[in-house]
């Protein structure tokens, strides 16, 4: 569990990766670029590949730019480092993804390779690569993203479920609210003003969660309210079907199927409402 590395060994299996990082000191502040040269160990010794996180940690401990200027450590958001919490999402070489699963072995395999890091552009920047995704959680609240149970006291088991439906729900439930689908969506826009949140497009993650909750026997109880949101401004009909969401989803959630499904649900919901009243 300990790693021994003499100076000679280090030189042999270390390469330098140049990081171009878009930095910003706080909301409303201008952004600037800073460059860092980070030594990266090759992963041959069974130590695992370096990733963007380990490189950012290295920069935090050695915050000096390539010009030799001392700067502040780069702020970024991260948590589990194994792609289940969704925190460390950022734009790497122009594409949104989790930085923990961006391994140097694959994204910068050679000495001198460059890696560009930017914060997600669809969320307000707190600082550097650290953004504020509260809108996403706010939208989950808007669609009533929960199963309305009677309380936490012992009332027996939940509804039975076929393995097929469980597999379908499980896949949708893996959504970690990372925001990749929103960043890549041409219809999802940056809305720093909370007042806009109620009618700006909610994006694939929230549409998919709507489907998830509407699939559950008890969750269905709130389906009408959810579909009211989904058929309103910013709902599913604002989707432009570019389908980038499903391509960038790290959990391979069938987001476009969810969009189709919620599309159908809103169609039926509105036709029913038209003929039968609310």
């Amino acid at each position: 569990m300990s790693s021994k590395n003499d100076a000679k060994g280090k030189a042999a299996n270390t390469r330098t990766v140049r990081f171009n990082i878009k930095r910003c000191d706080g909301p409303g502040q201008p952004s600037r670029w800073e460059r860092f040269d980070v030594p990266v160990q090759s992963s041959s010794a069974g130590s695992g590949s370096a990733n963007v996180i380990s490189c950012l940690q290295w920069i935090a401990a050695n915050p000096v730019t390539i010009e030799g200027r001392k700067t502040t450590p780069v702020s970024f958001d991260c948590g589990c480092l194994e792609e289940v919490c969704g925190a460390c999402t950022m734009v790497i070489n122009g594409q949104v993804r989790q930085s923990c699963s961006c391994l140097m072995d694959s994204c910068a395999p050679n000495d001198g390779d460059e890696v560009t890091l930017e914060p997600m552009s669809k969320f307000p920047v707190n600082r550097d690569l650290f953004v504020d995704r509260s809108r996403l959680f706010n939208d989950l609240e808007r669609i009533r993203g929960w199963v309305p149970i009677d309380g936490t006291y012992d009332l027996g088991a939940g509804p039975r479920e076929t393995p097929e439906q469980q597999q379908q729900r499980y896949k949708l439930s893996e959504c970690m609210s990372c925001g990749c689908c929103l960043e890549a969506c041409p219809q999802y826009t940056l809305e720093p003003d909370e007042k806009e949140w109620d009618h700006a497009f909610v994006g694939a993650a929230v549409i998919s969660q709507t489907r998830y909750f509407n699939m559950h026997a008890t969750g269905k109880e709130l389906a009408k309210q959810r579909l009211d949101v989904m058929s309103g401004p910013g709902g599913v009909s604002d989707c432009g079907n570019a389908q980038n969401c499903v391509k960038v989803c790290p959990k391979e959630i069938p987001l476009t199927e969810s969009i189709g499904s919620v599309g159908r649900q809103t169609t039926i919901h509105k036709i029913r409402e038209f003929f039968m009243g609310r």
Partner: peptide, 9 residues
């Protein structure tokens, strides 16, 4: 897709 005629991939 919009109308929900096609759902599955």
């Amino acid at each position: 897709i919009t109308w929900g005629l096609t759902i599955s991939e």
